[in-house]
């Protein structure tokens, strides 16, 4: 299953105003891996993700998804393979009702109406939002929006799931639910997060970005045990790995 490999080579991105968001980023992610990309605010995480489905074009460097290099010609196919959940769910939910929104992608794939309906029902159940079907997106809460946004992406049956800060703004229960959801997703997962405890729970591998370069790339636990690295990159140990300051138990 090597064809769902994600390869980024010497990626550089400079925004129109001259900000160098990515200096030189290289990484390879294999099929079925679950990878977290962490780093301080402004480290370039969102910028990196937006390259993976061709929203931003690199100033230099190369991206390969599966067997194809990312070019204008392969873009439609790659966008189908890479499902991206945006940081702000409002950007993603643009149709009149939740149903229409989730059905938007499958309709564009040219599926017949019955199959679209089935698929919509299935993914909405998967994210626990079946009861929201007929609601318009602007009547949803933040967590509900997030779940529906994930459903819209799942409805395309992507091979690679890319998410920008999936748990930000969720209440503890919704966060738990989402983490369960992600654990069940069998394919490649790549996400950025400031929720380091979630990273520890869900990802075997972590990539640390700092000022537009890859500062570290390795097993999650190793990275969180490297105090010097964490300090340099404005990060800290997840709470679950620290001693409990209240009851005094722990390491």
């Amino acid at each position: 299953m090597s064809h769902h490999i994600v390869e980024v080579k010497h990626l550089q991105h400079i925004y129109a105003d001259g900000t160098v968001a990515l200096q030189d980023v290289s990484l390879t992610i294999h099929h079925g891996e679950s990878v977290a990309i962490i780093g301080a605010n402004g480290a370039g995480k969102s910028t990196l993700l937006l390259h993976l489905n061709g929203y931003l074009t690199a100033n230099s460097g190369e991206i390969r998804i599966g067997d194809f290099p990312l070019t204008k010609k392969t873009l439609p196919e790659i966008r189908r393979t890479v499902g991206m959940v945006f940081q702000d769910a409002d950007d993603q939910l643009f149709m009149p009702t939740v149903f229409d929104d989730v059905a938007f992608g499958p309709f564009n794939l040219g599926l017949p109406v019955d199959e679209v309906k089935q698929r919509v029902k299935a993914v909405l159940e998967q994210v626990g939002a079946a009861h929201l079907q007929e609601k318009p997106p602007y009547h949803l809460s933040g967590g509900e929006k997030k779940r529906v946004a994930i459903a819209t992406v799942l409805s395309m049956s992507p091979d690679i799931l890319v998410m920008d800060e999936p748990t930000s703004g969720l209440d503890p229960f919704a966060r738990r639910q989402l983490m369960g959801l992600l654990r069940d997703f069998q394919h490649t997962k790549i996400f950025t997060s400031h929720d380091l405890d979630m990273v520890v729970e869900l990802c075997q591998r972590t990539i640390v970005l700092h000022k537009g370069i890859v500062k570290a790339d390795g097993p999650t636990l190793e990275i969180f045990n490297d105090d010097a690295l964490l300090a340099e990159c404005r990060l800290e140990k997840p709470l679950s790995m620290q001693g409990c300051p209240v009851c005094g138990k722990g390491r």
Partner: peptide, 15 residues
């Protein structure tokens, strides 16, 4: 935001 929305539409096969 409009650009991101358009992007989200393209990502889901909008033609």
């Amino acid at each position: 935001r409009a650009e991101r929305i358009h992007m989200a539409m393209l990502a889901r096969g909008f033609t």
